[in-house]
Structure formats: structure tokens, C-alpha cells
Design a binder for these strands. Structure first.
Lengths: 328, 328
DNA sequence: CTGAAAGCGCTTACAG
DNA sequence: CTGAAAGCGCTTACAG
């Protein structure tokens, strides 16, 4: 592990000034002959310019992405999609994980700004006042993913419609004791909007008195909520805010000898590959997370290039019918 | 979205010089009174120092992590674990995705170096000569995860032993037509070492003539290989290099009306949460990916602090017995 | 096609 | 406890 070689060193070896070497690395005009000398010198020392010293450069070529988790299927899809798009467009992606902590998310945003990225994509669990302030004062464009953000630019899933459609789908089967396993309201998109959709969809079929339990995003939480639910009384339909929660429900229902869907219908949101492997296959809504990532990245680049962009883009979803809901 | 405020601006507002402001932000001595003025000025403009300008700082406080994918359970676990550990220790994590492309992986490593990170963790699918050169010339410490790297420092899973144990487990059931669904040899750990373990384990029970198919890491690949396998002849035991491949096998076997494990035993490596939800539950080896991440991060920090570290650390695994292997 | 010079925003001994 | 000054490694008009 060698010492640091600088542009001045390379310039000296190539018998030119650092201006020329700088141009070489930034696509400026350099005579083929000179170019060759620089290439050799750089190669010999494995030299690449120190990005940190590009103080005067207007653009860093980097885009920051903040995600709430690296453990979730959805985040994985969104980031993968963003990353691929940006790479194609010649941008670097810097990924920061907030691990479901708002304070960390804010710190990540600040950090990316201080890293001089050209723009930021935020996939947030929850937009709080500090976000607004941070985004308002941002020196670079910011696009918010998966959460409504009326003050700025966002790309969102159609959580309400998806919830409504699923609510109707289950509501039509005429359940007597329906429950919705949700997450905290901190997460606007999932904890508030999706839930409202589900409840409204159910109501449109005459299903009221829905028990709503609140947990987090984990498998264990799905198990706990289901356990609690069964203790509190009978249940013949459980809609889960995410597939992972449904996995927990499956486990508990299986363990108690309850049959899906004969005793209890289960449905969820996510559309993970694994969900189709469950027995019975899980009925679920699949959001187009790749589209969220793709559109988000595309929109951000447009902002960076000062092209006009829509304030809000809503991507589609798809109801995937499994066999986990008892049809009439 | 406002213009950029600099340290000099803050200094002027607070009525001090930038030396003092710099000290303020780097934990140097500043009188409480002065401190307060600076805090206010900074707050008023949402100022945070531009990391890029810390040209003279010896340490950046950042660690780079290169992963082969953001879509895999294992990578997710490893990164999450790294990220948490480093954060606790006051370091930033910069994540770069190589999307299973060696060239991209190399570019990512170079990029992180030019970003002045204090150290790099590489979770590579395959170490090629260019890696060795890059790592040899690295100005900062590098720790390799999940792949053997005799020339340097690594943290690895015990792929051979895990393979052997699984080979034996299946071998003891006396299968007549055994197959191993593998990935390309490019991936030393999984494609070569794990496979050798499996084959040796089987052999130790007298099982030879194992059909080995090669695919990639996808669900689809699991389906394709299983389909091909069944076309080529009978099969009563399939060991898959990863759980995801086993998911594909499950789907195809189900679709063809073959029973697991009565007609065909299936086993794999991964230990994903979802695997225990399959019917029948998948028999799988769970590697301790959190430990890989944790130990990797810890080891890297020790390198950065010039403390002594082991050249190679091997983490454990666990055979999780499901019901997918027909026992005698 | 290339160089000299100023400057980017910060850090760091060194004085005081 | 704080400031003046040099410097980090690069970029960028501007000459030539």
C-alpha cells in the first residue's frame, strides 16, 4: 500500500504542467503524443485524480441516495433500479442507509450535501419538518421517493388506490371479522394512506369495524400482531401492510392449525418473489418499485440539467391473485 | 434551494476567522461565547462544512463498501451489519454496488480510493489479477469479505465445511440420482469451494456421479436448471448453491406434481427467513452474514488504527433442518 | 495545443 | 483562546 501520488507528480513525469494533466482527465484538448505520456505515467503509479480536490468543479458527477433500509425487498429494488439508470447516464451513486431512524436520515442528507453531490434521491419513511427545511435550503435538487411531498418533487406509489382495490377484493368475500395489520403512522404512505385505502375499500363493500393493529416492518411483528389478534377474538380475514408481515401471519396461523384461506383469508402488499412460493400462494399487490427508482433517477437528472419535470409522478400497481383469500 | 455558504461566510457573521470556525467543527478549543455565535450563524444558514475541501485532513472518517449486489439477502445482511458497526464507531459508510460486473467492481474500488476513504471493505464475487494489483497499491487498508484472499486480509464463510456437512446430510439418505445446482466458477467461494465441499461430503457417503448444473443467482436460473435436470433424466435429490435457486426448484417440482421430499429431496445454502415458510420447510445452511460484516468492519478499523489483525477469519454456519430432505 | 496564475473551501502548525 | 499565513490537490479562464 503505497503513498499518495498527486497530479503534480504525474505532470512532472510526463514533462507537462498539471493544467495539462487536469485537462487529460477531464476530456479537454491534449495532443495525442502528450496524452500518451500522461497515460503511461498515470498507469505506472495507478494514479487517479483525488475527487476531493475538485473544489472548483461545478459538478461532481455523483448522486446521493438515502434509503430507510437495506434489508427490504422494496428498497433493494428501488436502489438497484436507480443505480443502473444513473450508471448508464454516467453518474455515480452514493448510497446511505438510514436504518429506519429519522435522525440518521437527516444526517445522511446533510452528509450528502457536504459531499457535494449533484442531486439527492430520498426514499424516506417519514417526512418531518426538518426534512422540509433541509430540502428547502438544499443547494442541489432533491427528489422524494415513495412519500407524498407537495412542497417539492416526488415519485410515489398509488397507495390509496392499491389499498382500495385490495380492500374491495377482500371485502367482496364478505368477511365477518376483518383485521388490518399496519405500521406506525409515521410512515405516511404505508401507515396512513395505504390504510385509508384499505379501510375505504372494505367499507365500500359494507365491511366496517375493522380491527387495526400497529407494528413495525419485521417478520416478528407480523407474528406478534397475529398472535395478539387471535387472542382478542375470532378473525377470518387479515390484510397485512406488507408481505413480510403476512409471512409472520402465515407462520402463526399454521402453527395454530388454522387453514388459509378456509379459516382465515390473508392478503398483503409487496409482491415479493417468495410470496408466490407460499402455500397457499399469497394474494398481494405488487408495486412497480423498479419504476419508482427509474423515474426518480430520471427526474433528478432532469432537475440537475434544469429541464422541466412533473411535480408528482404516480406509478402503477398490480393485484396478484393467489389462493390465500377465500372467495365466495 | 439556496446558494452555497462557506466557512468564511460563517466566520464573518460570527465575527471570527475561519480558523476558529474550523476548530469549532473539528472539536478544537473555542470559548463558549464564541462557540455560541458560530453555532447560531451556522444554524441560520443550515451550514455544514464541505467535506470535499478537507484536503489537508489526514482522515476522512469514511469507509467504502463494495458489494456485488443490492438484491441479495446475504449482501443486505452484510452491509446492514457493517453500516451499524461503523456508525457506532463514528465512521461514515459509503456503499457502492457492482451489480455482478467485475469491471464495475474495479471501478468502484478506484472510485472509493479517489474519494479518500480511510479504508475499503470488498465483498467480491471473484478476485482477479486486477484486484490484487489495485489492493497492493492501495493507499488505504482493504479487507476482503466472503472470498479467500491469501495475499491480504479476509473474513470468510466456511464454505467447504458447510458444503461437506450438507453433502453428508443428503448423502446419508442414500439418493440414487443426485444433482447440484451451482453457480459459475468465477465465484470462488460459492462456485468452487462450496461445490467441492458438497461433492466431497456426498462422496464420503458413497454418493458419486453427481450431476452438476451451472447457472446464475436468480430465481429463474433455479427454475431453468431444475427443468433441464428433469428433462435429462430422473432425480431424487437436488442440492442448490443458494436458497433462491431452491425457490426456483420448488416452483418447478410443484408445477410438475413432484412431491418434496417424497419424490425429490431439496436442500440449499442461505437460511433466508422465507425459507422456513416454504412447504415443506427448506433444509438449508445458514451462514452468519452479520458476523462477516461485523468482523470485517472491526478488522478494517483496526487496520486503519494500525493495530494488529488476523490475516484470515472464518465465521461459522448452522445446518437448519427442514422437511425437504427425505430421511431414511 | 499548453502553461502561469489565481482560486476553490478548508486545515494546520505556529505565534501571540 | 484566537488569528495570519501557508498549503492541500485540483480546476479554470486567460494568454499565447
Amino acid at each position: 500500500m503505497a503513498g499518495r501520488v498527486t497530479m503534480a507528480d504525474i505532470a512532472e513525469m510526463a514533462g507537462v504542467t498539471k493544467s495539462t494533466v487536469s485537462r487529460y482527465f477531464n476530456g479537454g484538448y491534449v495532443k495525442e503524443e502528450t496524452r500518451e505520456k500522461i497515460r503511461k505515467a498515470a498507469k505506472a503509479h495507478g494514479y487517479s485524480p483525488n475527487t476531493f480536490a475538485r473544489l472548483k468543479a461545478r459538478e461532481s458527477g455523483m448522486v446521493g441516495v438515502v434509503v430507510p433500509s437495506l434489508n427490504s425487498k422494496i428498497s433493494s429494488r428501488v436502489i438497484t433500479s436507480i443505480d443502473r439508470y444513473l450508471r448508464e447516464e454516467g453518474y455515480e451513486t452514493l448510497i446511505k442507509n438510514s436504518d429506519h431512524q429519522i435522525q440518521l436520515e437527516l444526517a445522511n442528507i446533510r452528509r450528502l450535501m457536504s459531499l457535494n453531490v449533484d442531486g439527492i434521491l430520498i426514499s424516506s419513511i417519514s417526512i418531518v419538518e426538518e426534512h422540509r427545511e433541509l430540502i428547502r435550503n438544499s443547494p442541489v435538487p432533491v427528489v422524494v421517493l415513495a412519500q407524498e411531498y407537495p412542497e417539492g418533487i416526488s415519485v410515489v406509489d398509488d397507495d390509496y388506490q392499491a389499498g382500495f382495490v385490495m380492500g374491495q377484493y377482500v371485502g367482496r368475500t364478505n368477511p365477518k371479522h376483518t383485521a388490518y395489520l399496519s405500521v406506525t403512522e409515521e410512515d405516511q404512505a404505508v401507515g396512513v394512506v395505504r390504510r385509508r385505502g384499505v379501510l375505504d375499500g372494505l367499507k365500500s363493500c359494507g365491511v366496517e369495524n375493522v380491527r387495526v393493529l400497529i407494528g413495525d416492518y419485521s417478520y416478528e411483528s407480523g407474528q406478534n400482531m397475529t398472535g395478539q389478534l387471535l387472542e382478542e377474538g375470532p378473525a377470518d380475514a387479515i390484510i397485512c401492510a406488507t408481505d413480510r408481515l403476512a409471512f409472520g401471519a402465515y407462520r402463526v396461523l399454521h402453527d395454530r392449525g388454522l387453514s388459509i384461506p378456509d379459516d382465515v383469508s390473508v392478503a398483503a402488499f409487496g409482491g415479493y418473489d417468495e410470496s408466490s412460493l407460499l402455500t397457499p400462494r399469497l394474494t398481494t399487490v405488487k408495486f412497480d418499485s423498479y419504476a419508482v427508482g427509474y423515474l426518480g433517477a430520471e427526474t433528478l437528472l432532469k432537475c440537475i440539467r434544469r429541464e422541466p419535470v412533473p411535480k408528482k409522478q404516480v406509478v402503477g400497481f398490480q393485484l396478484i391473485e393467489g389462493e390465500s383469500v377465500r372467495l365466495l
